[in-house]
Simulated scan of single mutants.
Amino acid sequence: MLKLFRSIRKGLLSENKLSKYLVYALGEIILLVIGILIALAINNLNQDRIKEKNEQIYLLGLREEFQFSKAKLEELIAVNKANFEGAKQILEHSSSPTNDLDERDFSRLMYASLSMDIAFNPNNSLLTEMINSGNLKNISNPVLRILLTNWIATLEDIERQERDLGIQRERVLDLFRRNEYSLKTILLHTGLYEEFGFPDSGSHHSNLSLMESREFENNMLMFILTSAATETAHYEPLMQDLEDIQALIDAEIE
């Protein structure tokens, strides 16, 4: 093909046909430009296919991460609710004139309400890698990109709330560092003392006087209020964000 073009060009020049040569040269330039544009278009199509393939890989990975995170959040909401309900039962009994809560039930309610720490630890390894490496730009949906970026900031807010809840929990538990109350009694009535293999001396100190303590009541109220706020003001909106992200990811997966 190139040899043909050269022979035509030489023929026109040898025949001294300048105008025809210029028309031919212009046509050759146009053909060259068209060839370059076609090559660029093919390259762009290949790049788009690679980008779409990478985006699908990221989306599948993100879907798996957020499915795992949703399961953990559901479990954590259930634990927080159980803590809240157990603590509320204790205060309901303490404020009741009859107060028929015995030592065993009190110990079990205390253990059920305060033994479990609250901490949401989602799997964000892929999302963190995408943000740090700049690969979040591979997500073509702008709304999804914004939600994924905001997710990390939201988790920092959740962590602050969980720290506050942990502080309120510790303030209740700190009462059992005092001489007046016995952690051993709670462990005995929940079966943990025996499970750990500790010897039972037979002397059990009652903790029921806590039910008459204003300090205990105040600390439990702060714990209950913080637990309720953690669910309604933090976990429920977080679950909504998580479900919105999941829906957008599912819509983008081919």
Rank of each mutant, 00 (worst) to 15 (best):
L22T: 07
S140G: 01
D105F: 08
A247Y: 12
Q246N: 14
Q67G: 08
L76R: 11
T149K: 09
L31E: 00
L248M: 01
L183V: 11
Q89E: 12
L144A: 00
R214Q: 14
L18F: 15
Q240G: 06
K20I: 09
A228W: 12
G11I: 08
S107T: 03
S19C: 05
P122R: 03
E252G: 00
D164S: 13
L101P: 00
Y58S: 04
L2D: 10
L91W: 03
G197D: 01
R108C: 04
K70N: 09
V23T: 15
Q56E: 08
L242A: 02
A87H: 03
E236Y: 13
N83D: 12
I152N: 03
R9E: 14
A228Q: 13
F196K: 10
S113P: 01
Y58L: 08
S140W: 04
N132T: 14
A119W: 13
R171A: 09
K3F: 06
I249Y: 02
E64T: 13
Q168G: 06
A119Q: 13
Q56G: 03
D164V: 15
L192Y: 08
D244V: 03
I57V: 11
F84N: 09
K72Y: 14
W151T: 08
L210E: 00
Q246K: 15
K20T: 08
S140H: 02
L175R: 01
Y111N: 10
L242C: 01
N219D: 04
Y58V: 01
I158Q: 15
Y193L: 06
D244R: 10
R145I: 06
G134H: 04
E65W: 05
K137A: 07
E162A: 04
E236N: 12
F68P: 06
S14W: 12
L26F: 14
K72S: 14
S133E: 07
D174G: 10
P122H: 02
L18P: 08
Y235L: 02
E75M: 11
L175Q: 00
